[in-house]
Amino acid sequence: MNAATKPTGLDQPAAHLRLVPECADAGSPGIQLSGVSKTYRSRDGDVPSLRPLDFHINASEFFVVVGPSGCGKSTLLKMISGLLAPSTGEIFVEGEQVTAPSGNVGIVFQNSLLLPWRNILNNVLLPIDMKRLPRDQYLPRAMALLKLVGLEGFEKKLPWQLSGGMQQRASICRALVHDPKIMLMDEPFGALDAMTRERMNVELMRIQRETGKTVLLITHSIPEAVFLADRVLVMTERPGAIAAIYDVPLPRPRSLDVMAEPAFTELVQRIRKHFFSQSALD
């Protein structure tokens, strides 16, 4: 296995910033997909969305999926979170088969999807309410997370009083508050402007390192994928299948300067070729 797939070995953050205890490698098998496919039934017949997929995401890995629109990326995410049953195959999260929402994942969508009638703190605590866990027990954790993403002092504000980037940071807190093992992110920064997006990428990388979560992120942007990922999965057009999986051999921690390095641009070019050759066939 490539060294780049084990990011946890590099630059351990200060102990007080770690929000979860260090997981032993043996007891945390990450996410396992075997033969997972999805076919939607419609009046015009069956519409294949995903061809059978087999891959494994390691614990604490930053795993990014890139693919063209409509290749079933969001379907993949919904199946892993247990919201959608796969047509064939099995999904295992932390060694347990997914058959219904397990509550062991945090989800971030393209839109922050904060509830406009709840203030930021109560929005962050939504998973606690849904799981009917004791609020007061998770309050310090919610505050710590808001501090981690730089939203200290905004707890009592309503979502519309915050900028788009701040709203998305709050939604990241919400995805982490119930301490899930896995974060699923569906184009989390797609709705933000380019400058905010770059800053959020750096932030996200820091949050992932400090919390040690397994992250599955879906994006359209190839540079974003390479910048963030330990491994990048490239998907084909609909029905989606795995075109390739690349290790990203860039050392961590990464800064935005890494985007100028030859290794970075070369990998971006290599991934981009998948999509050009595909559309040439059309």
């Binding site: 979170s81 919201l83 929402p101 509550g103 994942v105 969508f109 999807l113 509830l115 849904m130 799981k131």
Partner: peptide
Amino acid sequence: VDPDMVDLARAMQGSRFHVFRAV
């Protein structure tokens, strides 16, 4: 209501009633 919002609440194991009341 945004279906993603309902999915989000459901993914946290919210019961149908809880999701309805909260979202």
